[in-house]
Simulated scan of single mutants.
Amino acid sequence: GDEFDNPDGPDGSGNAETPSEGGKILVAYFSAQRHTQAVAECIVELTGADIYCIEAAEPYAANPYDDSDRIRNEAYNDLRPGVANLLDAERIAQYDTIFIGSPCWWHQPAMVVCTFLEAYDLKDKVIIPFFTYGATTYLNESMQKIYKVTPDSKHIPETLPEDLDPDDITTPGRPDDAGIDMPGNAGGTEAWLRRIGMIE
């Protein structure tokens, strides 16, 4: 898309007005079945952010269930599948805030999202994860993973419920997922952005 084509003028060494108080926002997301994409598009509509879709170098099946062995292997072994369309470091450097969206796959973010995050210096940037999922039982596991791969970033929420057993990503129904705020789906995005203070 042409969402990055508007020139940014000088290299930012001057005191040019930023379009919004919080600086530039990027919504980076991976979506297999458009659920995450729908939330990402809502965030863009409501915040004026730029959007970027993370693509796997080796695409997943249209129905992720057909790829579940690969996905489980990547999640359980903490692998880093390649990203087909990594952005330049300079481009990522322009953003102060990055929303990062993913489905919950085998109790983790899609690992290609971790590949993307680890490709950049995200020190002091605000990282706001959002997940789409059928069940919330692994939400904390997935959030913890994003925080772990972005250790020098600021996060919203600032803290997560204590991970009762960080080495165990396979036992369902542990009580440490309650209280993590998520949009849930596209329809819940606006209220969620208000709650986290991203829109008035």
Rank of each mutant, 00 (worst) to 15 (best):
N73I: 04
G82K: 09
S68Q: 15
Q94P: 00
E74R: 11
A89Q: 12
Y60R: 10
Q94H: 10
R70D: 05
I92G: 01
Y60T: 10
N73A: 12
L86K: 06
E58P: 01
D78W: 02
L86T: 02
A93W: 03
S68D: 13
E58N: 14
E74C: 09
A57G: 12
R70T: 15
R91Y: 00
E74I: 10
D88I: 01
R70M: 02
Y76L: 10
L87Q: 12
R72Q: 11
A61Y: 02
V83H: 06
N77M: 07
N73T: 13
E58F: 00
N85W: 01
R80G: 01
D78P: 01
Y65A: 14
D78M: 09
E90Y: 00
A62V: 12
I71C: 05
D66T: 08
L79E: 11
E90W: 00
Q94F: 01
P81E: 06
D78Y: 00
A61N: 12
A75M: 03
N77W: 01
R72T: 12
Q94M: 09
A61F: 02
D67S: 12
N85G: 09
A89K: 14
D66G: 10
V83Q: 07
A89L: 03
A56S: 12
Y60E: 11
I92N: 01
N63S: 10
Y65N: 15
Y76V: 13
L87P: 03
D88Q: 09
R80T: 10
A75S: 15
R91C: 04
A93I: 07
N85S: 08
D67L: 05
N77D: 08
Y60F: 09
A84M: 04
Y65V: 13
D66M: 11
A57L: 12
G82W: 00
D66V: 04
N63Y: 07
D88S: 14
D66H: 11
Y60L: 14
A61K: 13
E58M: 08
A84Y: 01
D66F: 04
L87M: 15
P81D: 05
A57E: 15
L87K: 08
